[in-house]
Nucleic acid binder design. Structure first.
Lengths: 213, 213
DNA sequence: GCGACACTACACCGTGCAGTGTAGAAGCGC
DNA sequence: GCGCTTCTACACTGCACGGTGTAGTGTCGC
């Protein structure tokens, strides 16, 4: 019998500490450079415990990413409801879209975490096929945004024949230049710069998607 | 005296072979995973020779990237002149822009090299600060495209108050979704898919930048 | 007190890999 | 032929790191 190595269940608090430390170190150093010893130190936990909890470095990595992704998706939904509610009125539209874009991009560039995770995903996509989500429109973030845009379209504020596509472009226009210039968070950007880039992106989006353009 | 390790000049052909092999292995495996032995094997050269030529892994890496970048920039200029000449007429515009976008994105997604290099840069930007070009508008690719758009603007085909910004958006719209979905070349995309994504991007660009929109 | 479990500290193994040293073969100018 | 350089083949060092084994220290339920 190949006997499963029987990972330990352990306490949720400790799991959380490990996963948080792991993400921090992975994001900072990259997968290969990150050492399990460093993660253990960061989590204030013995290396042995990490192996008892997660088995090996790879599974720790995947767990950390999965957990973070879920948290980020939840964050995004909240952000979307806060800045771009379905009840947005016509003359609030540009302001609301800019607020949405700014909140989104600021989160990307300041918290550094979102973009950094993206950077990590891009770096490791080829080595961990399971990280690659097959259906691009299935990404919850895109889906939520598409639904919101569709609502705005039905109310006649925007002209969005293809909400999924429009959502992709909006995300791209708003965050693309920020990611491009900051190398997905590797290089810090000034706040004013971020704002300027975001506003430019929203302006282009509106020129392309405003009703009757 | 700290005596410089005196790198060997060597033959250009051998240098080229090493650099090409290095890029291939670095792109395939990433910087840390790539072993100098593997590069030597790939280049059909002894490991010692690589060290005599380049000193250490890091300098080899930087040389390979620098050389590739220059080549890609030259390629881009040629591509731009071929698909989007300054003499483009009004009714050729959409077709020419699409051709440009398609050629650009196809090169990105098919040759795999361009996107893969980008992936490598994103992955290593934080670890090799010298890779990060400080001036984002100084990237020759963006500059060349901006000049071309400015020409089209002056001839009244497009409305581009800020050509540098427009160039950035065009690049983003055309390649962004391809990069996004292919994880910068880590996942292959079907040709038809690429074409569809590119055309969508051009359509949005034109809606936003067409004269009198 | 006692057993069971969680955890740490620490020593340890194996391996992969950056980088070096060197002997010798191959080519070239003269 | 002779000396010089280039290059290879190969052995070797040092080190970092993934992963394991284990003895010992709490800590909790009973």
């Amino acid at each position: 019998m190949p006997d499963t190595p029987t990972l330990r269940q352990g306490s949720p608090a400790k799991r959380a500490a490990i996963v948080r430390a792991a993400l921090e170190v992975f994001v900072r150093d990259g997968y290969t450079r990150a050492s399990v010893d460093a993660i253990a130190r960061e989590a204030a936990v013995s290396k042995r415990t990490i192996y008892d909890y997660y088995g090996d470095k790879e599974r720790l990595f995947l767990s950390a990413l999965a957990e973070t992704r879920e948290a980020q998706e939840a964050d995004f939904r909240r952000l979307l409801d806060r800045t771009l509610p379905g009840t947005t009125s016509r003359d609030e539209l540009a302001v609301a879209l800019t607020a949405f874009g700014r909140a989104f991009a600021t989160e990307i560039a300041r918290s550094a975490e979102r973009a950094a995770v993206m950077r990590l995903l891009i770096a490791e996509a080829a080595h961990f096929p399971s990280l690659v989500r097959p259906d691009p429109e299935g990404r919850p973030v895109q889906r939520a945004l598409a639904e919101r845009l569709a609502e705005l379209g039905e109310r006649g504020l925007l002209e969005v024949p293809d909400p999924a596509e429009a959502a992709e472009f909006l995300g791209l226009l708003v965050t693309g230049r920020v990611d491009y210039r900051s190398w997905y968070g590797a290089v810090p950007l000034a706040d004013g710069e971020i704002e300027r880039l975001v506003e430019g992106g929203v302006r282009v989006f509106l020129r392309a998607y405003r009703q009757g353009s």
